[in-house]
């Protein structure tokens, strides 16, 4: 998988979904090449299907409803193959019925698969779901013996965004040792390969000599120092552009004065002000650091 540009292939997306549905406890009922069927637990169903009123009705009226089955195709070939199978099964079902009703014949349609690709509704919902469910974690290596001494680390992951009228983003992961405030950049990539198990946060943090606030300050200072060393040409250009645009706007409105008509002049000034504000909001260069994940990680003491 391309770490910087993940999920660009069908295979990566299939693996992503398999891991997700296993992690949330969905039952994998069908597994064929580039195709899966998952039966969703109710909490996951609510997150992945966009039907709040349905769930309101189900819960208010204590309805027993069948769990949703997702039929996900990860390639065009798989979609074609499985859709054809579902049509066949539908026809067999109709043929097997002694007396199909008018509704069955006219309206009941064969089930269809969903093609999972980048930007599709379901994958976006999955992203939303992992953004919530994967926000925080407290872990230590699975291999570490029970009772082993752990060095506590705080991991902060997120995006550094350079924003002007467009945006450029860089993913970051910084780890701060809560024992000595050591800072490690790319912390996540350094530990991602280690199989982990859950660990109570209070247990991992037991060996901390520094507060979370101190660690945060340290991480912040380190990140801001790193950012300060970067090339900020983009921001200078953006600022110059904004100055030019504002000057052009001001010149235009100063040539449009209506001294003889105070009401019109006031309206023109309001318009001028509004357009200035819009331009400033759109183009002012700024850096946003967006924290999206926090992890408490206990790493065994290396002697």
């Amino acid at each position: 998988m391309d770490v910087q540009h993940p999920l660009r292939t069908d295979e990566e997306r299939l693996k992503f979904c398999d891991v997700y549905f296993d992690a949330v406890g969905a039952e994998r009922t069908v597994e064929r090449p580039m195709y899966r069927e998952y039966v969703l637990p109710r909490d996951v169903d609510k997150e992945l299907t966009d039907r709040p009123f349905y769930w309101l009705w189900v819960e208010r009226t204590n309805q027993h409803v069948e769990p949703t089955t997702l039929r996900l195709a990860f390639s065009d070939e798989a979609k074609q193959r499985e859709d054809a199978r579902l049509v066949e099964e539908h026809q067999q079902m109709l043929a097997a019925q002694q007396q199909p009703t008018g509704y069955d014949i006219l309206f009941r349609k064969p089930k269809q698969t969903e093609r999972i690709d980048l930007g599709c509704f379901r994958l976006e919902k999955l992203f939303d779901s992992v953004r919530e469910r994967g926000k925080t974690v407290s872990v230590c290596p699975a291999q570490a013996p029970e009772g082993a001494v752990h060095v506590p680390w705080m991991m902060l992951n997120g995006l550094i965004q350079q924003v002007t009228d467009s945006v450029s983003e860089e993913w970051f992961s910084v780890g701060i040792c809560l024992a000595n405030l050591q800072v490690e950049f790319n912390f996540y990539d350094k530990i991602a390969h280690i199989p982990m198990r859950g660990c109570a946060p209070s247990r991992v943090l037991g060996g901390a000599k520094h507060t979370a606030a101190e660690a945060v300050q340290r991480a912040k200072a380190a990140l801001e120092k790193q950012i300060a060393q970067k090339d900020h040409h983009w921001a200078e250009e953006a600022r110059e552009r904004l100055m030019d645009d504002l000057a052009q706007l001001d010149t235009y409105y100063s040539s449009m004065r209506h001294e003889d008509d105070p009401e019109r002049q006031a309206a023109m000034e309001r318009e001028h002000q509004r357009k200035r504000e819009q331009l400033i909001a759109k183009s002012t260069p700024r850096i946003a650091i967006q924290l999206s994940q926090i992890g408490i990680v206990g790493l065994p003491l290396v002697r």
Binding site: M1, V3, Q4, H5, P6, L7, F16, V19, Y20, D22, A23, V24, L126, F127, V130, R131, R133, G134, K135, T136, V137, S138, V139, N157, G158, L159, W171, S173, Y188, A192, M196, R197, G198, S292, Q293, G295
Partner: peptide, 13 residues
């Protein structure tokens, strides 16, 4: 939880 955390990192990237 760790798997979901990892998926979140992948999704953000």
């Amino acid at each position: 939880s760790w798997h979901l955390f990892q998926l979140c990192a992948i999704a953000t990237r």
